[in-house]
Design a binder for these strands. Structure first.
Length: 117
DNA sequence: ACTTTGACTATAA
DNA sequence: GTTATAGCCAAAG
């Protein structure tokens, strides 16, 4: 497994696994990678992802409060909210409405890997 | 090789 | 409930 060059690519992989209309937090991705308390590195990887020309839905990654903290790193500060609203996620005052409802935890969702309802 | 930063999180007050 | 501080680890300067 791994074989990844840097932990950056691991973050990109998890970010790519975020389903449409779902969001996750930096800490969740960091925990899935085993970094645990180093959620900052996930955000840093996202910043690098912008320069890597990779298809990483960074707009689906927000902080633990469901706040669009990284919106300022997109092309325009309103782009992140625009993308989230485009996916059916309601955003008010840079905050995701019902964040806990559309939250997607990679460590949990990938572990179950069987959403039989 | 050392210092600073950084899209965070948890705990304390 | 909020606000302040410390911890976190890896990459860029």
């Amino acid at each position: 497994m791994q074989g990844s060059s840097s932990f950056f690519e691991r973050v990109y992989e998890i970010a790519r696994l975020i389903p449409y209309g779902r969001v996750t937090s930096y800490g969740a991705i960091a925990g899935c990678l085993g970094l645990g308390g180093s959620a900052r590195m996930v955000g840093w990887a996202m910043n690098a992802a912008h320069t890597q020309a990779l298809n990483v839905p960074a707009h689906r990654v927000v902080n633990r409060n469901g706040l669009l903290t990284g919106k300022h790193h997109f092309g325009t500060p309103a782009l992140m909210q625009q993308l989230l609203e485009s996916e059916g996620i309601e955003v008010v005052d840079d905050k995701i409405v019902g964040f806990h409802d559309c939250f997607w935890d990679p460590a949990t969702e990938l572990k179950i890997n069987n959403n039989e309802f």
